[in-house]
Design a protein around this nucleic acid. Structure first.
Lengths: 143, 143
DNA sequence: GTTTATGCAAACCTTTTGCAAATTT
DNA sequence: AAATTTGCAAAAGGTTTGCATAAAC
C-alpha cells in the first residue's frame, strides 16, 4: 500500500516530466515497494498478473525506466543474462554477495571500502558517480 | 605471436578436453593475447578479418567460452549491454573504473579492498570465488 | 577413417518500438 | 477535446544452435 506522501511525490515527479499518473504506474510502483527481493521484469509481471493487475510487459519496462531514473528502484545486473530490479526508496546503500551454489543474493555494506573507492577514483582524477560491487561466493563448508 | 610454451599448454588443455587444436582456435588465442584492450566479440571478429583470418562469429563465441573457462581471457560486463573480453593470461588481477563521459576503461587494484572483501564474505560464512568491482566515474573537473 | 570443428542461417530471448485504441487531465 | 499511455505484435540485437561440410587426428 502506497502512502499518501509517496503517491504525491510520485505524482509531482510525473507532472514535472509531463507524464500522467496512471493506474498501471501506481500498481507497478506499489508492487515494487512492497517487495524486498531481486526480481526480473518477468517475475514482476507474473506477480502483478497474480494480483489481478492487468498490465503488459512493455508497460512494466517503460515504468521501470522511470522508477530507476528517480531512484525508486535499482537495476541489478549480476552478469547472468538476467536483469533484476530491487526496491531502492527507503533503503540504505548496499552491494551484493551472490552465492554461486544457491543463487542467494545477500546484501552487504562496508564504509571502509566505500572510502577506499573514493580515494582511488580521486587519485586518478575522477569522482565516483555510482559503483557496482559484487562478490560471487560459496559456503565455507563447501569443498 | 604465441610462444611455444603457450601453444603447448593450450594444446594439452584441448587434448585433455577431447578437443582439437585448430587454426581458428590458435588465431583467436593469438589475437586475444596480442591485444590489451577490452573488446566486444564483434570487434575481435573485425580485427581477425582485417588480419585475413577467416573465422565466423560462432567460432569466436565458442572459442571465447573455452578461453574464459581456462583463464586465458576475462569476460567483462559493465552493464551497458555490450560484453567485452580482455586478455587475462600473464596479467595481474585488477578491477575497472569506467569514465561515463569518455567510455575510457581504467584498471585499478587495491589490496586493502581485496582483504576487506574476503573478511566480509567470511563473516557471512562464505569464501569469495570471484568478484566484480566497477567504479563509474567522471573527471573531477567535470561539473 | 573417425571424430570434432566450422560456417551458415535459423532460432532464441529479452528488451524496445510503432501504431491504433484507451485513459488521463 | 487534447495529450499521453497502453497493449499488441513486430523488430531489434546479441548470442546460441542444428546441421551439413571441412579439418584434425
Amino acid at each position: 500500500m502506497l502512502t499518501e506522501k509517496i503517491k504525491d511525490d510520485f505524482s509531482n515527479l510525473l507532472i514535472k516530466e509531463g507524464m500522467k499518473l496512471t493506474s498501471s504506474r501506481l500498481s507497478i510502483l506499489d508492487n515494487i515497494l512492497s517487495n524486498d527481493s531481486h526480481r526480473e521484469c518477468d517475475q514482476i509481471y507474473e506477480d502483478l498478473i497474480n494480483d489481478d493487475v492487468k498490465v503488459s510487459r512493455a508497460t512494466i519496462y517503460r515504468t521501470l525506466d522511470v522508477l530507476v531514473k528517480y531512484d525508486y528502484v535499482r537495476k541489478l545486473d549480476i552478469g547472468d543474462g538476467k536483469v533484476r530490479y530491487e526496491k531502492k526508496l527507503g533503503t540504505k546503500h548496499h552491494d551484493h554477495m551472490i552465492c554461486i551454489e544457491t543463487g542467494d543474493i545477500i546484501e552487504f555494506h562496508n564504509n571502509e571500502i566505500e572510502d577506499l573507492q573514493d580515494k582511488i577514483a580521486e587519485r586518478h582524477g575522477y569522482k565516483i558517480v555510482r559503483h557496482v560491487h559484487q562478490l560471487f561466493v560459496k559456503p565455507l563448508s563447501s569443498k
